[in-house]
Design a binder for these strands. Structure first.
Lengths: 333, 333
DNA sequence: TTGTATGCGTTATCAC
DNA sequence: GTGATAACGCATACAA
C-alpha cells in the first residue's frame, strides 16, 4: 500500500507538497500539481483517512441513535440524514439501541473515544427519562417532541393531535377512543394533551376508560382494539398515536365485523408508506421525516463546527391527511 | 483531553503498561492494573480510538451497501447485521446507494481509504450488472441471489418461487400472472425461472403476456395490477415477486371489484411485517432476513481477519407461509 | 513483568 | 511555492 512519501518521491517533490496538492491545491503551482497527480495515478495512491482523521482529531462521522431502524418512520428519517451527511463528507454510524440504555451508552462511548464527532438522538426523552448524553458532546435531538434541552428538531405533537381530534368531532364523533403509546412516552404525553384540549374545547368530558395503552407496534394496536370492541358503549372513532397501531387496530375491528368508517372511524399518525395502502386507507398526520433528517444533520454539523445556531429548536409543520378510514359518526350525515 | 501519557504519569508506570492494561490485561500484574485503573478513573481518560485504529491500521467498521434503507426487508437485515457488528466491536457505516453507481463508488472509496475494513453488499448483481467492488477489498454478498462470485449469503429464489407457483397450481390455477421486478434484476430472473419450471412441470404453457414488470415498489404493483384487470381472460392468480407490489396490486384489484381470493389469488415474497396485516393477509415466502444479517457479518469478519471460509456461499432456507390471499381457482373447490 | 524507543501517515509550522 | 521536520496518541519490538 503506497503512502504519501512514495508519491512525493516519484513526483520529485516533498511530502508537504503532495499533502497540499490534495487539500489546498490553490497553494501549489500547476507544474507541481500535475507531477503529483501523475504520480498518484501511477502508484494508485489512496490517502489513508485513518491517519488524516487521527491527525486532524476528527472522525468525520456521526452516530444516529435510533430506537428501531425497522420502523418505517425512522428509516425514512435516516435515509435523509445519511444523504445529507454524505454530501457533507460525513459518515453515519448506525446506532440501533433496541431501547436499551446499555446499547445507548455503547454508542455514546463511541464519540467519547473519538470514533464519531456527534450524535443525532431519535429517542424521545422527557424530564423523567433523561437521555444520558454528557453535555459536552455535540448532540441534536430529532425525536420530534418537546421537553428537550439541547438543540432540537421537532413537530408540534399537541397541535397535530388536536387538529385530528377536532376533525373527528366535526364529523359528529363524541365518544373517541385513543390508542396511546406507553404512558410515559413523551410523544404519547404530548398527543394526549392535544386530544384533551380538543375535547375540552368541544365540551366533551374526558373519560379515562377510552384510553388504551399500546407501544407503537402493530401488534399492540391489534390488541388495544379489543378493548374498544368489548365496551358496552363503543367509541365511534379511534385516534391511534401512530399508523402501525392503527393498522393493527383496523385488523381487529374488521375481524369483529365492525365496518370502517361506517361503524367506526380510525386515524393514525406519521403517514408511513403503508398508510396509503391499508384497507381502508388511513386518515393520518404526516411528519416531514426527510426534512427532519436533513435539518438534524445540518444542525449537528453546526454544533460540531462550533458555529452558533440561529435557533435552539426548530419546529416543523405537519400535514393533516384525510383518507378513507374516517367518516361521519353513525347516525349523522 | 487526557491521553495515555497522563495516565501513565499519574499511575507511576510507563505508557506501555497502560496500553497493555487496556488491550492485554493478562500481561500486566494485578498491582499495575489497579494503579492504572485508578489513574484512568481519576483523570476520566478515554482512549483515542482514532489513534488506536490508525496505529493498528484497522477501522473496526464495515460499510453496508443497501439500495434503500426504507425497504422493510433491508432494514430488518441491517438491524441484525448491526447487532452482530456491535457484539464484535465493529461499527456499521450506512451506505444507502439509492441505486446510483456514483454513490456506491463513494462508499467503496471509503474502504479504499481505510475508513472501513470491508463491505456487505445488498445490491443484487448479475453477470451484466457487475458490482464494481475491486477484488482486493473484503466483501460479502448478501443480496440473496445467485450469480455472485465472492463469498455470499443467499436463498434459493428459484426453488422458493417454484414452491409458491406449485401451490397455486395445486389450488387449480392455470392462468397465473406475475408481477416481476425489472427484467434484468437478478432476483426477478431467478424467481421467474422458478415460475417457469413450475408451469412446465404441470404442463401449462408459458405466456409472455402474463408477466407485468414492476420495480419492487407498492406503486408499481398497483400499476401492474391494471394490466391484469384489463385482460380479456384474466388470470385467476397473481404471483408477485415481493410483498410491497402484492399489497399495491391488491389495492387495485379490490378497487376494481375483484374479490381476493375468491376471484383472484395474490401471493407475495419476503414476508415483511405488513404482509400479516394486509387485507387480506398475504400468502408469501419468508426470507430469514435476520439470520442473513448475522451470517453476513460473521462471514465478512472472517474475510477481514483472513480466516478461511468453510464454504464460499451459504444458502439459507426460506419458509412458505399460507395466509388468506390465496384460495381455490374460481369454479374449483 | 516492565520500560524505552520507534514508527504508523498525515498535516502544519516554520524557514527558505 | 516549496521542503524539512515536528507533532498527533497509541501499540509494539526489544531490552532489561
Amino acid at each position: 500500500m503506497s503512502n504519501i512519501r512514495d508519491v512525493a518521491r516519484l513526483a520529485g517533490v516533498s511530502v508537504a507538497t503532495v499533502s497540499r496538492a490534495l487539500s489546498n491545491p490553490e497553494k501549489v503551482s500547476d507544474e507541481s500539481l500535475e507531477k503529483v497527480h501523475n504520480a498518484i495515478a501511477q502508484v494508485g495512491y489512496r490517502p489513508n483517512m485513518l491517519a488524516r482523521n487521527f491527525r486532524s482529531a476528527r472522525a468525520y462521522a456521526v452516530v444516529v441513535l435510533v430506537p428501531d431502524i425497522a420502523n418505517p418512520f425512522y428509516s425514512l428519517f435516516i435515509r435523509a440524514l445519511e444523504d445529507r451527511a454524505q454530501q457533507k463528507g460525513y459518515a453515519v454510524l448506525l446506532g440501533d439501541t433496541r431501547g436499551t440504555p446499555e446499547r445507548e451508552m455503547e454508542y455514546i462511548r463511541r464519540v467519547e473515544t473519538r470514533l464519531a464527532d456527534g450524535i443525532v438522538q431519535l429517542r424521545p426523552s422527557s424530564e423523567k427519562s433523561q437521555n444520558n448524553i454528557p453535555p459536552d458532546i455535540p448532540c441534536v435531538n430529532a425525536c420530534g417532541c418537546e421537553y428537550t434541552t439541547g438543540p432540537a428538531i421537532r413537530i408540534d405533537n399537541r397541535a397535530a393531535a388536536k387538529t385530528m381530534v377536532n376533525y373527528l368531532i366535526s364529523l359528529g364523533h363524541k365518544r373517541i377512543g385513543v390508542i396511546s403509546g406507553l404512558k410515559d412516552n413523551p410523544h404519547a404525553i404530548d398527543r394526549l394533551e392535544g386530544y384533551k384540549e380538543a375535547l375540552a374545547d368541544a365540551g366533551i368530558p374526558f373519560e379515562k376508560d377510552l384510553i388504551a395503552e399500546g407501544d407503537f407496534t402493530m401488534w399492540s394496536g391489534l390488541n388495544a382494539a379489543f378493548q374498544f370492541c368489548n365496551m358496552k358503549v363503543r367509541p365511534t372513532a379511534v385516534f391511534s398515536m401512530n399508523d402501525e397501531m392503527a393498522i393493527g387496530a383496523m385488523q381487529t375491528l374488521k375481524n369483529q365485523g365492525i365496518r370502517i368508517p361506517e361503524d367506526m372511524s380510525v386515524t393514525g399518525f406519521d403517514d408511513i408508506a403503508y398508510a396509503k395502502y391499508s384497507d381502508p386507507s388511513l386518515t393520518t398526520i404526516s411528519q416531514p421525516a426527510e426534512e427532519m433528517g436533513k435539518m438534524a444533520m445540518d444542525m449537528l454539523l453546526k454544533v460540531i463546527e462550533g458555529e452558533p445556531l440561529s435557533q435552539r429548536e426548530c419546529v416543523l409543520p405537519t400535514e393533516f391527511i384525510i383518507r378513507k378510514s374516517t367518516g361521519p359518526a353513525p347516525g349523522k350525515k
